Structure formats: C-alpha cells, structure tokens
Amino acid sequence: MIHYHAIVKGRVQGVGFRYFVQSEATHRGIKGWVRNTEEGHVELKVEGEEQAIHDFLQAVRKGSPFSKVTDFQTNPLTEIAHYSTFRIQGY
C-alpha cells in the first residue's frame, strides 16, 4: 500500500476533472480525496496498491477529454491514512 499527494495544474476546474479523477480512482480500487484549490488547481491524496496508484497517476497526468494538464506534481507520503472511500471535497 502506498500513499501519494498530487497537485494538478492547467485547465482542470470547470471541466469535470474531479469527477474524472474520482471515476479513475474508483475503477482501480483507490481510496482518498480530490478537491479544487483556490489557486485554480486540483489537489488530491490517494492510497492503494502500488501498480494501481502508478496507473492512476498516469491517467490523471494525461487528463480527461475536456481538461488540459500543464503541470503535475506528485509526492510520495510515508504514512498511510487508511481512507475508507474516494470522495470529492470542497476547498
């Protein structure tokens, strides 16, 4: 089990990007959360099996059909949060 924090920049607000992220996470059995930031980015924290997380992060980096990802920053986290679901949060 691994845990990651990511910031996604580009055209990622107002285009259904958080729902895309939630769908990709749910499809792969990944738990965590995603939210818009006040700066216009999308932030997420996810945990799951290593291969599932790497595949998920690759899909998020590529983006959804209506988004345009221009910068994608990821950081592995050392502690596991034991999220029970994947959800969309507010700011």
Results as ranks from 00 to 15, higher is better:
E50C: 03
K45L: 10
Q22V: 12
V42H: 02
G48W: 03
A25K: 02
A52N: 11
S23C: 11
E49S: 01
G29S: 09
L44S: 00
R28I: 04
R35F: 06
S23G: 13
H27S: 15
E24W: 00
R35V: 08
G48H: 04
Q51F: 04
G14P: 03
V34E: 01
Q13G: 06
N36M: 03
G14W: 08
G14A: 08
F17Y: 13
T26V: 15
V34W: 10
G29R: 00
E50G: 01
V15S: 05
E38H: 12
V42Y: 09
S23M: 14
N36C: 02
T26P: 05
G16K: 07
V21H: 09
E47P: 00
E49F: 10
G32L: 05
E47M: 03
V46G: 03
G14T: 02
Q13D: 05
K31R: 11
I53H: 04
H41T: 15
Q51A: 15
G29E: 01
I53M: 10
E38C: 07
N36Q: 04
V34I: 04
F20K: 04
V12T: 10
G16H: 11
F17D: 11
S23T: 14
T26F: 11
G16R: 00
T26E: 13
T26C: 09
A25E: 11
I53R: 08
E49V: 12
A25Y: 03
V46F: 07
I53L: 03
G48M: 05
E39R: 15
E38W: 11
E50V: 12
R28G: 00
E49D: 13
I30S: 06
Q51T: 14
V21R: 06
V42C: 04
S23D: 14
V46R: 03
V15L: 03
F17I: 12
R28L: 14
